[in-house]
Design a binder for these strands. Structure first.
Length: 717
RNA sequence: GCGCCCGUAGCUCAGCCUGGAUAGAGCGUUGCCCUGCGGAGGCAAAGGUCGCAGGUUCAAAUCCUGCCGGGCGCGCCA
């Protein structure tokens, strides 16, 4: 903002110089920062561009030499006309660049004045008159809140803060997943293994454990079922089997299959699947087999067949008899090893029954859902509070289900969606609708299950409508992990086909996953890093260092500082990596308190506070002789301070909190270098006054920038 | 198969949108700096075929094309 004014002034001077020297003025003038440290000015490659242009007419031209010549002439001319201007310091031509240096004291004053005048608003952009909704943090209730969710929440929060500060009217929305398969599974696990239990605290996390346990048991049950079916279909071709045994088993099996096929259309379908599987030797899709009770009866029958076989084998004579007996014994051993576990066989059936109760709105189940849902939500609220993250709107998946179903009907009626029920789901064949059949760009999205129950997409369509119509937003940002990129592309396209003009203003801010050195986090393998544990460890490490550095502080202040440092270290480790980069979570790297970390920034802020506190004099900017001499470190610091407003706009435009994260680090670094080399309190009066004002401005800017990241800036660390 | 993302120092990452001077940090390693406002700091050294190959350009880590490695997506999951 401030620098922009200087840049404009410089541009005007260069334009006049070009005219005076009879050089072409057609090229757009570009300015860039000087690459050298501790200098203050801007540079333009204009002369190189002019020389390149001349080369088109004169191909033999030595471009670098000619560029330097032009730059030299411009520099000489500018030096002449700018002499005496208070803003100007010097101008030079280097390697074809035209470098223009500003009068440091002049700029210093205007920068610092601006910061001190605007205070917490320094860097705030003018109102844009545009309403933006940022949807972020969509954790599932009944599941654990882990560090992947943390990345999302921290990123969305920072983005919201940045957009708001940049001048957009920002609405922050969260969208917990409070219904769906995961909820049913969790409730099943609760009812089956933990009915009536309720821990006194951390009930949300406990529920997450129940969910993980349920998943594990279901997976185990699934493995069991597969083994059973594999044995049923493959026993006759096991190693060491004899023709006599094989024939017997195949006979019994075919009899059973024929009988089942005769039982009706379902039996026929199941039998077909089984026969095909037997032929190919591949396991059939278990979910496709409808009558699982029949499968189970087959399993029980298999036990009897083997008994029968064993009985008959006892009477077999000769060489073959021994082989037969051995084969049967092996089969029986295998059969017993797989075992008889009717409960596990039926887990899946129980889940389906629970789903049915849910769909029928069984009051008892609804009551349990409401109660347990609240356990999770109270934990989410506590986490958000802990992290200083707030929401203007709470959407719930459960609240948009019914509307979603209505929308699907509307889309069918308008020919956008294709109804394949009852043999398939309701789908939107997007590529076909766009007239690009054969292309695989948008593909096909299912928006309602064949049984009429809702999908994630059903609810998202309803949610989008609610955002547009209920909140009159101009723009809609979805902070969701990168795996859903195609999905959101599809949803936005459907919104467009549906006729929402805001569809083009929907943006999926994708971010990469948080993984572990060992790979993906998995609840099955028990490798999920809970937010809770991360935060506890962060607090503990922060507490230890506060204890070490400031043992004399009152305990409650130590606790407050540790809290702030923990927040800083967690958030910064999530924000200082670009969105599209996987964060491989490493405890020591994530919780390091030195180097490019949150506490480094907070430390710089605390140091500035300390100087201001010790000065015991108000910060003033009076008299003309301030900033007459400036150390390079002072110039660098002022420059860093001055770029903040531009950076805010850029971060908002590009949806990149990372820019702010990197910026605060550079700023804090500049401050620490200044701190080291430029004493404030012990300096002579005039210099002391100027530096004190600079410290105040630096402190303010660090605080403002940290605030955009949601990181607290304590006065004492 | 189709699509998206990543590949820069021993490790973790900025820089790429919008091409520009000697490619920057942090961690780690080595050596310094507290009788100065807080050493959670600062200074210095070592460390680079910017994945590879073409192309565009006066100029390429940056733009384009092709390849090679790695990750992810393409469900009646969310």
């Amino acid at each position: 903002m401030i620098l922009a004014a200087y840049r404009e002034w410089a541009s005007e001077q260069v334009r006049q110089a070009l005219q005076a020297l009879g050089l072409p003025q057609s090229l757009p003038l570009e300015w860039r920062d000087l690459p050298f440290a501790y200098t203050w000015g801007i540079a333009t490659p204009l002369a190189m561009q002019l020389a390149a242009q001349e080369k088109k007419i004169n191909p033999d031209l030595d471009v670098p030499a000619r560029a330097q010549e032009i730059a030299q002439r411009l520099a000489e001319h500018l030096a002449g006309i700018l002499k005496g201007d208070p803003r100007f310091q010097r101008v030079e031509a280097v390697r074809g660049y035209l470098n223009l240096y500003f009068n440091p004291s002049h700029v210093a004053r205007s920068v610092i004045e601006t910061v001190l005048r605007e205070g917490p608003s320094y860097g705030r952009g003018a109102p844009k008159g545009e309403r933006v909704m940022v949807e972020f943090s969509q954790p599932n209730t009944h599941k654990a809140f882990h560090i992947g969710h943390l990345r999302n929440a921290v990123l969305g929060d920072a983005l919201s803060r940045i957009l708001d500060f940049a001048g957009f009217e920002t609405i922050r929305a969260t969208y917990p997943g409070d219904i769906g398969a995961h909820v049913i599974k969790c409730l099943w696990g609760y009812l089956r293994f933990h009915r009536g239990e309720e821990p006194a605290e951390r009930r949300g996390a406990w529920l997450g454990q129940i969910y993980a346990e349920a998943e594990a048991r279901l997976e185990e049950a699934d493995a069991y079922r597969r083994e059973v079916v594999r044995f049923l279909l493959g026993a006759f071709r096991e190693e060491g089997i004899t023709p006599w045994v094989r024939e017997f088993l195949l006979n019994r099996l075919s009899e059973a299959l024929v009988a089942h096929a005769a039982s009706g259309p379902i039996g026929q379908k199941d039998t077909t699947l089984m026969i095909r599987a037997m032929a190919t030797g591949e396991l059939p899709d278990l979910d496709a087999i409808v009558d699982k009770d029949w499968l189970w009866s087959l399993w029980e029958a298999m036990g009897q067949w083997l008994e029968e076989l064993a009985e008959k084998a006892r009477g077999r004579r000769g060489k073959g008899g021994e082989a037969d007996r051995q084969a049967v014994a092996a089969l029986q051993a295998h059969y017993r090893a797989i075992g008889h576990r009717p409960e596990e066989w039926n887990y899946e059936k129980e889940i389906r029954a629970l789903f049915a109760r849910w769909e029928a709105r069984d009051p008892e189940l609804l009551e349990l859902w409401r109660r347990t849902r609240e356990w999770s939500l109270e934990e989410f609220r506590r986490i958000y509070e802990e992290l200083d993250i707030s929401f203007d709107v709470w959407f719930f998946e459960s609240e948009v289900e019914e509307e979603g179903k209505r929308i699907v009907e509307e889309l069918i009626a308008r020919g956008i969606a294709t109804d394949l029920r009852p043999h398939g789901p309701v789908v939107v064949e997007i590529d076909r609708l766009l007239g690009q059949e054969g292309k695989e760009e948008y593909r096909t999205l299912a928006i309602l299950r064949s049984d009429g129950t809702t999908l994630y997409s059903t609810k998202d369509l309803a949610l989008a409508k609610r955002k547009f119509e209920g909140f009159h937003i101009d723009r809609s940002i979805y902070v969701v992990d990168v795996r859903q990129s195609l999905y959101f592309k599809q949803i936005f396209k459907i919104l467009e086909l549906w006729g929402f003009p805001q569809a083009s203003k929907c943006y999926h801010l994708a971010y990469e996953m948080v993984t572990l050195p060992s790979g993906k986090m998995s609840s099955r393998a028990g490798t999920i890093v809970l937010y809770e544990d991360f935060a506890a460890e962060a607090r503990e490490r922060a507490r230890r260092i506060v204890e070490e550095k400031n043992p004399e502080l009152p305990p409650e202040q130590k606790a407050r500082i540790a809290e702030a440092v923990a927040k800083g270290v967690m958030k910064y480790s999530m924000l200082s990596v670009d969105n599209n980069k996987v964060i491989v979570f490493d405890w020591d790297a994530a919780l390091n308190l030195e180097g490019q970390t949150g506490p480094y920034l907070q430390y710089a802020h605390a140091r500035a506070c300390r100087i201001l506190e010790k000065a015991e004099t108000p910060v003033r900017l009076e008299g003309d002789r301030l900033f007459e001499t400036l150390e390079p470190q002072e110039v660098a610091l002022i420059e860093a301070i001055a770029t903040f407003p531009d950076l805010v706009q850029s971060a908002a435009e590009r949806y990149k909190p990372l820019l702010i994260a990197n910026y605060v680090f550079d700023l804090a670094k500049a401050f620490n270098e200044f701190y080291r080399d430029c004493p404030v309190l012990t300096a002579p009066p005039l210099i002391r006054e100027g530096r004190l004002a600079l410290v105040a401005a630096a402190r303010q800017t660090i605080a403002n920038a940290l605030n955009l990241l949601g990181i607290p800036a304590p006065e004492v660390l």
